[in-house]
């Protein structure tokens, strides 16, 4: 009993898939930008010598690194709106969850990057009269960011994979589109295979870019943090 493959019904839904992919990229991009900014803020707070700043930042980072993303997503989508009395669309819930979640990982990348810079760089900056924030902005971060690029790209790729979870709360991303199309066409095998391949192509290309960049950094003698 050989199965008759038939991709036509799936391909007929190409616009639907394209829209799903666009939404996947949209949620990934949003969470990436917010995650990086928030991650930097968390890292700076965590490195602060004042414990009323460093401790809460450390707490947020640990909680979000130590619980499953899907649990976080459900909490933000089903629990938080009732708690604070606001409506949350699946997109907003996803954006908030994935932003904080990736921020807690980016924060550790930033921290490792900042701490990897030799003490002498701080000395050099302070010796010419720089304030802490000036030294950080002009001297430390530009060097640290370069070392963080590979870890940063790896995290971004992980983030894209994590965004598939948003399909479980019915946001119309690529995986959700697969769900819909397979139910409409009764062709789950072809649908899920096509969608898996689309994910593979996008993520594989991103990984190759990351690999190339890492190689170039390694060749230029740049040390990196992970």
């Amino acid at each position: 009993m050989a199965y008759q493959w038939d991709f036509a019904p799936v391909l007929a839904n190409a616009p639907f898939l394209a829209e799903g992919l666009a939404n996947t990229l949209k949620i990934t991009g949003t969470a990436l930008v917010c995650g990086v900014v928030l991650g930097l803020a968390l890292a700076l707070l965590r490195l602060s010598p004042r414990c009323f700043l460093s401790w809460p930042a450390g707490f947020v980072i640990e909680v979000f690194r130590t619980t499953p993303p899907l649990v976080q997503l459900f909490w933000f989508f089903f629990a938080l709106p009732i708690l604070v009395g606001i409506e949350m669309t699946p997109f907003v819930a996803g954006a908030v969850t994935f932003s904080i979640q990736s921020a807690s990982f980016f924060a550790e990348v930033f921290r490792a990057g900042i701490q990897s810079i030799e003490r002498g760089q701080w000395d050099g900056a302070r010796a010419i009269g720089m304030r802490h924030d000036q030294a950080l902005r002009r001297i430390i971060l530009p060097q640290a960011v370069k070392r963080m690029i590979p870890a940063f790209m790896e995290r971004a790729i992980e983030l894209m994979k994590t965004t598939t979870l948003i399909a479980t709360i019915s946001y119309a991303d690529l995986l959700f589109a697969a769900n819909e199309i397979s139910q409409k066409t009764f062709r789950p095998l072809e649908t899920y295979t096509v969608v898996a391949l689309i994910y593979f192509v996008v993520i594989f290309l991103a990984s190759q870019v990351a690999r190339l960049v890492e190689l170039r950094l390694a060749r230029s003698g740049e040390s990196t943090v992970h």
């Binding site: 002498g120 760089q121 000395d123 050099g124 010796a127 010419i128 009269g129 060097q143």
Partner: peptide, 29 residues
């Protein structure tokens, strides 16, 4: 910060900023 501008310091390990050119280093302060 005022004091450090009036009292300059040169280190054993130079502590130059590697991401800036020579003149960039001198201009930075």
């Amino acid at each position: 910060i005022q004091v450090r501008q009036r009292v300059g310091m040169v280190f054993q390990q130079f502590n130059l900023f590697p991401h800036m050119t020579a003149i960039g280093n001198v201009m930075e302060g």
